[in-house]
Design a protein around this nucleic acid. Sequence first.
DNA 1: CGGGATCCAATTCGATACTG
DNA 2: CAGTATCGAATTGGATCCCG
Lengths: 138, 138
Amino acid sequence: MSSAVISLKKIEDNNLPRVVDLSTLDPANCPVRDVLQQIGGKWAPLMLDALAQKPYRFGELRRAIPDISQRMLTQTLRDLQREGYIDRQVFPTNPPSVEYRLTELGRSLYATLALLLNWAEANQSAVRAARYRFDAQA
Amino acid sequence: MSSAVISLKKIEDNNLPRVVDLSTLDPANCPVRDVLQQIGGKWAPLMLDALAQKPYRFGELRRAIPDISQRMLTQTLRDLQREGYIDRQVFPTNPPSVEYRLTELGRSLYATLALLLNWAEANQSAVRAARYRFDAQA
DNA sequence: CGGGATCCAATTCGATACTG
DNA sequence: CAGTATCGAATTGGATCCCG
């Protein structure tokens, strides 16, 4: 089939979707760097993933990600709120209760981010195998 | 239109695609953390994006990302090679020439990663606005 | 319960100098 | 050209103590 040949050729040519041309951008004002820096940290993807399921309270979120320190939980929550990905709602009960949930922007981000999370899960074994080969030959 | 109502309800319910359930995983063996750590760095996404266009030689790649140090270029290239995303080919010319190109795994990753890069570019202004609001109110 | 503040350890990163 | 090696700065992250 000619279509198979065509798609094979596309792969050989590295013909991949690429909308932004990063090479023509000022590095100091690159939107990809600007936005990716915040979602590329150690905890942000996990927290966005948790909050994509349902709203969480502080302690609840801490139990959902057992090995996060309280400092990083607080800080990452504030960062995500500043970026506009999550919303913080305080209930003046006693003791106080605070709920975090994704904003619409956050849900938009997660819709794309989730594809990457799924890719990671689906291809972990391939990555592990590549690491093993690399380390063996070295 | 009822379809609009339905999709609105889905958004309100946080009904988003989620294949991996991270909360049930051992944090120390989480595929998402394992894989995302390498592609979440400061330089890896930019280099994958460059190499998705075409193969690059060392110095050429350095010029394409003007503000990367040679140390980080070397190190990130090795990391990406170890993960199985890029291939390194040495041409025994004089002076030597080394070419880097995406592997099939790397192209598979980039197909997903590019969606996130596009999201970042498309939504940078919304993120900037959110930051401004957050900083103004604080 | 939901944090703030402080101190310290680990990791990341950049600048510089040197090499086949 | 394509790296390696070393140093120090900067950033990130964890532990601990404190509070309303």
